[in-house]
Design a protein around this nucleic acid. Structure first.
Lengths: 186, 186
DNA sequence: TTGGCTACCGAATGAACATTCAATTTATTG
DNA sequence: CAATAAATTGAATGTTCATTCGGTAGCCAA
């Protein structure tokens, strides 16, 4: 792994464990086996590393979310996306914790957040289609996006914080609840 | 308002706007019209102020949540609680933003969090009753708590971040979605 | 009045930290 | 093999900040 990668990943690990401001550059340097000066060869500032991490992860799950979606059946498509995100977060707890605890304003500027918007444009389109075709409730799409994302996050939280076992059955419960909140009453 | 109150409230305002580590004690002192030394007359450390804020707010909404709950009808009770929390957060955006962005580990220790657990014990009991009496799905109560809280937070986020108008109708949509995720299918 | 107590002040202290840079090593290219 | 460029180093710099502390002022009780 090249030094730039090592620096980024080390920063991610430390920042999630300790918080941004409790993580001095000197420590990042030491744990990445690199001199402090080297970090500044690859990055302008400490905050730029954080921003690069944010964009890396945001792009990451914009892609992950859309992988292996079935051809049709809206509910099954939603389920696939839901599980994609759940599994990504559970498999990458550092990414999850970073997004939850580190990537908050004013550390991450609105400007940086907006750079990651393209990644979710197609998710938005997916829900718009679901509304038009009357698979899900006719409510503002922004509300749907926020609730759906919130549901995944809730499930991941339980798992990551070790507050609930989250076996196959429990994951399914969580998904069922999420789907019930979206779907049009029968 | 006495000086201790002024210090706490000023800290809340600044910390939500700027982040904890971008908020020097000197600034808190200035904006609260108090000398730095005075802050240390009332508090041991900067972090203690943050912890006191956390407990203040956690206690606050433990109480708010349970106010004016109707005598019976589980769904109406849930709705009242849901709206209580929604309105509290919307009416106290500083409290909401503090809980969302500031009160994250490792700033707030598990120890402090556990001090606020008693406040939610009765909420837990409420959902346990709902499960037993078959108003809501028979899933782990921890999952119900997390999803329900997450739903309120999602709605509040939209409002506080000004991403959706959140008029009466939209609030009702959000609640309907939340309730549909809990309720047993008809 | 005097002694002690609490509230209050803000300059001074010392530690921690992000960032710089001159020097050195390593890679690349003609 | 130069000779130039790129990568790497870590001590030094300068700033920012949490916290301390010696002192002043008001207040009450003996």
């Amino acid at each position: 792994m090249d030094k730039k990668q090592r620096i980024i990943i080390t920063m991610l690990e430390l920042v999630v464990k300790q918080g941004v401001h409790a993580t001095p550059m000197s420590q990042v340097a030491k744990e990445a086996n690199v001199a402090v000066g080297t970090i500044y060869h690859y990055f302008e500032t400490k905050n730029q590393i954080i921003e690069e991490l944010y964009l890396m992860i945001a792009q990451d799950y914009g892609v992950v979310l859309m992988a292996n979606i079935p051809e049709d059946n809206f509910k099954e498509q939603y389920k696939a996306m839901w599980l994609n995100l759940y599994n990504y977060f559970v498999g990458n707890p550092l990414a999850f914790l970073f997004m939850e605890y580190v990537a908050v304003p004013p550390l991450i500027s609105k400007n940086i957040v907006s750079q990651s918007v393209p990644y979710i444009a197609n998710i938005r389109d997916f829900f718009l289609k679901g509304i038009k075709e009357q698979h899900i409730k006719n409510v503002p799409v922004r509300l749907v996006l926020q609730m759906a994302y919130g549901d995944v996050v809730s499930a991941v939280r339980l798992k990551v914080k070790d507050e609930l076992e989250m076996n196959k059955e429990h994951i399914d419960f969580a998904f069922q609840m999420s789907w019930d909140s979206l779907k049009i009453k029968a």
